[in-house]
Nucleic acid binder design. Sequence first.
DNA 1: TTCCAGGACGACA
DNA 2: TGTCGTCATGGA
Length: 311
Amino acid sequence: MTIEQLSRHPLIALAAPYDFALSISFWQLSTLELCEQWADGVYRRVIVHNGRPVVLSLHQAGTVDAPAVWAALDQQPATLEETQQLAPLVRQLLGDDADLAGFYEAVAHDPVMASLTQLLRGTRPPRSPAWETLCWVVIGQQISLPFARTLKTRLVQGYADSFDVAGRTLFHFPSPERLASVAVEALLPLQFSRNKASFIVGLAQAIVEERLDLLALTDMPTAQAVPYLMQFRGIGRWTAEFTLMRALGRRDALPANDAGVRQAIAALYGQRLAEPELRVFAQRWGDWQGTAALYLFSWLKTQRLAPQAAA
DNA sequence: TTCCAGGACGACA
DNA sequence: TGTCGTCATGGA
């Protein structure tokens, strides 16, 4: 399908450079295909629109240097009015405010990171809602990615609404209200540890009881948001930083204790660093350490996917 | 069998 | 404040 044909639809222009496919497939090994999907060049996620859950589909239209998407709601192309209404959310979902050019310039002095920015040019990982992200990250604490994925799948299969789209099942992540009412014991048969189950339920209850305000994170600098999150049981520094990086796209939020970050630095820079040393090491990226971490993750993803793609 | 995974918490010195 | 044991499972 050509751009001309696609241009029948109202377009949402995005900041360049932006590689839609590269960016969306970023989380392919973790959360993708449960609450968000990437198939046939289309990104799908369930959103609440005018008070009801609908399947939002984003179709690529444009190029890396002139990027744009067009939207559909429940498989029907959005009207001009709907597109205008959806544009801010779409831009937020796609991390359109991330200043990639600024990042590339800031790390140009680091040959390794500079080569990554060339290899992954236009990568701007999609963001997911803070509550959904926080749960994903808590689930992912300490366990392997495949097992984390198993737990995530069981959680959404048990507690999320599902939508059949293009022959696939798409889940709408359960709200805090839904998970706050779940008994910790009910998650144990899903192979959640008691700690992990109580963290998830407890955080949901904190939101319902308005002790935890994830919306307030938007207006907090990262240095304030990290200790704010860490007040709550189940959220350590890694979880706070990972959530801020993933959900809010904080360029200065570096999950320095992350095994993936350490692994990527060991592979690319030849240095196996513990958390304190890694934080010092990361100062070379200035306040772009979170964005740099995303590029390290993205590079790791290409390494992990390569053998599977060849198989 | 041991160690490591996209850790956090609580006890203890 | 820093260290260590514990939780919990799967895979290499």
